[in-house]
């Protein structure tokens, strides 16, 4: 393994009872790369993320992050090593103001170590981060309860919470789902900037055409198995991939 590799999965598997949600998946990711993970519903994409981030313990296989075996470590430790994730279902802390939602990760052990936010500054840091993802500081929005946010903003909030951790690897679970075309268009430059900062990105997506504008590499899952890997153009040429998607509307949009 060369030292530019940041993440390596070796034959990773997870079964729930008789169901093999993830079945022997291996791939490598270099620092600064952006990887798209695609596949039909129930193909094990979310489980794969849970395995990498430690939310679910794998049945077998290895996860190697920055040269260190992190297989099955508790999720909070994975975060402290530099893996941040968002959730498919963006659930904020409903009863807490939006900017305080970001204070939670800003106050976290990793962020305190990395950003060095002093006491009292944290609200400011949080609002700054919110501005970065497209909230307007002077509007009332950051001070509202997060429960009142419209869906598009929730996704941005998720993103701000990830960035607050100053991660090396960001894993975004269906960031684009439920967003309008214009919302996605406004968030693409932000993803571009995250990449320019040298951060590694994994995106699980259904919206292929938008995804392919961000990532330079794609892994395709079907029934928990990796059926293709390569550039977007390469994987879409694989017959198995198109047949896995056949009949689903996603391909017609792509």
């Amino acid at each position: 393994m060369n030292n530019k590799t940041i993440l390596q999965l070796v034959d990773l598997s997870k079964s729930f009872g008789a169901v093999k949600a993830v079945n022997g998946v291996s791939f490598e990711l270099k620092r600064g790369e952006a990887l798209g993970v695609i596949g039909p519903n129930g193909s094990g994409k979310s489980t794969l993320i849970n395995l990498i981030t430690g939310f679910v313990r794998p049945t077998s296989g290895k996860v190697i992050f920055k040269g260190r075996d992190i297989t099955g470590i508790p999720p909070h430790k994975a975060v402290n090593l530099g893996i941040a994730r968002s959730f498919q279902l963006a659930r904020p802390f409903y009863n807490i103001p939006v900017y305080k939602n970001v204070v939670i990760p800003v106050y976290s052990p990793r962020a305190r170590k990395h950003l060095g936010a002093k006491y009292g500054d944290r609200d400011e840091v949080a609002i700054h981060l919110l501005e970065d993802v497209g909230f307007e500081r002077d509007s009332q929005v950051p001070y509202k309860n997060a429960g009142e946010l419209p869906h598009g903003y929730l996704k941005r909030l998720e993103l701000a919470r990830c960035l607050a951790l100053d991660p090396d690897l960001i894993i975004l679970d269906e960031l684009f789902s439920g967003m309008s075309m214009s919302e996605i268009a406004s968030i693409l430059p932000l993803l571009e900037r995250i990449r320019e900062e040298g951060k590694t990105l994994i995106m699980v997506e259904h919206r292929l055409s938008e995804l392919f504008r961000v990532v330079d590499k794609t892994v395709v899952l079907n029934f928990g198995k990796k059926i293709a890997e390569g550039t977007p153009r390469q994987v879409m040429a694989v017959e198995e991939v198109t047949s896995a998607y056949l009949g689903s509307e996603v391909i017609s949009n792509a």
């Binding site: 729930f16 009872g17 430690g54 939310f55 679910v56 999720p75």
Partner: peptide
């Protein structure tokens, strides 16, 4: 019980 929920370490 094979509750997926409980297997998640949250």
């Amino acid at each position: 019980g094979k509750s997926k929920e409980l297997e998640e370490r949250v």
